[in-house]
Simulated assay, not measured.
Amino acid sequence: MKKALILLVCVFAAGLTLAQSDNDNAIDNKAQDILSELRQDLSALQAEFKQYELSQDGHADDKNSGTVWMQAPDFFKWHYKEPFEQLIVADGEQVWVYDEDLQQVTVKPQNNNLNPIYVIINEELSTRYYHIAYEGEQQDLSWVKLTPKETSDEVKSVMLGIKNKQLHRIHVNNQLDQTLVFEFSDLKRNPTLSKDTFQFTPPEGVDVVEAIE
Rank of each mutant, 00 (worst) to 15 (best):
D62V: 01
L18Y: 07
L45R: 01
A26L: 14
V105K: 01
F84W: 14
D22W: 15
A60P: 14
V89S: 04
Q86A: 15
Q71I: 03
E48H: 12
D62R: 09
Q104W: 02
W69S: 05
Q86M: 05
E123D: 09
A14G: 14
V107L: 01
G92D: 02
W69T: 03
A72N: 07
L125R: 13
I120L: 11
A44V: 10
K77N: 01
V97A: 08
D22P: 15
S43H: 14
I120M: 12
H79T: 06
D24H: 14
A26S: 10
E123T: 07
S55V: 02
V105A: 02
D57H: 04
N112A: 01
T106R: 00
A90W: 05
W78Q: 08
L102K: 03
D101W: 12
P83F: 10
V68L: 06
Q86Y: 15
Q32A: 14
L42E: 03
L54E: 02
G66E: 00
D57P: 06
T106H: 00
Q56M: 13
E100F: 15
G58N: 04
E85D: 11
E48Q: 15
W96H: 11
D99L: 08
E82C: 02
D101P: 01
Q51C: 06
P73H: 06
V97K: 00
G66M: 04
P109K: 01
Q46E: 08
I27H: 13
T106K: 02
Q51W: 13
N113Q: 06
Q104T: 05
E48A: 14
F12H: 09
D28P: 15
E124T: 05
I117R: 00
N29D: 10
Y98P: 03
Q94F: 15
Q20T: 12
D33L: 15
D74A: 06
E53S: 11
K108Q: 04
A31S: 08
F49D: 09
Y98T: 05
W78M: 08
A47Q: 04
E37P: 05
A31M: 09
A60E: 09
N25C: 13
M70Q: 12
V107H: 05
S43F: 15
N112T: 01
Y52H: 06
E53P: 06
F76K: 07
Q46C: 03
E100L: 13
N25F: 10
D22K: 12
Y118G: 09
N113R: 00
A31C: 06
S55M: 11
F76G: 02
Q103V: 05
M70C: 04
V105S: 01
D57K: 04
L114Y: 00
L87N: 05
Q104G: 03
Q51R: 11
Y80R: 02
Q86W: 09
D28C: 13
Q32R: 10
A72Y: 11
K50L: 05
D101Y: 13
L45A: 09
G15T: 09
V107T: 01
S36H: 10
P83R: 06
G58A: 03
N122M: 10
E100T: 10
G58Y: 10
L54T: 06
K30H: 12
E124M: 02
Q46F: 14
L87H: 10
D41L: 09
L54F: 11
Y118F: 13
F49L: 01
E53T: 11
Q103Y: 01
D41P: 08
E48R: 07
F84N: 13
K81P: 05
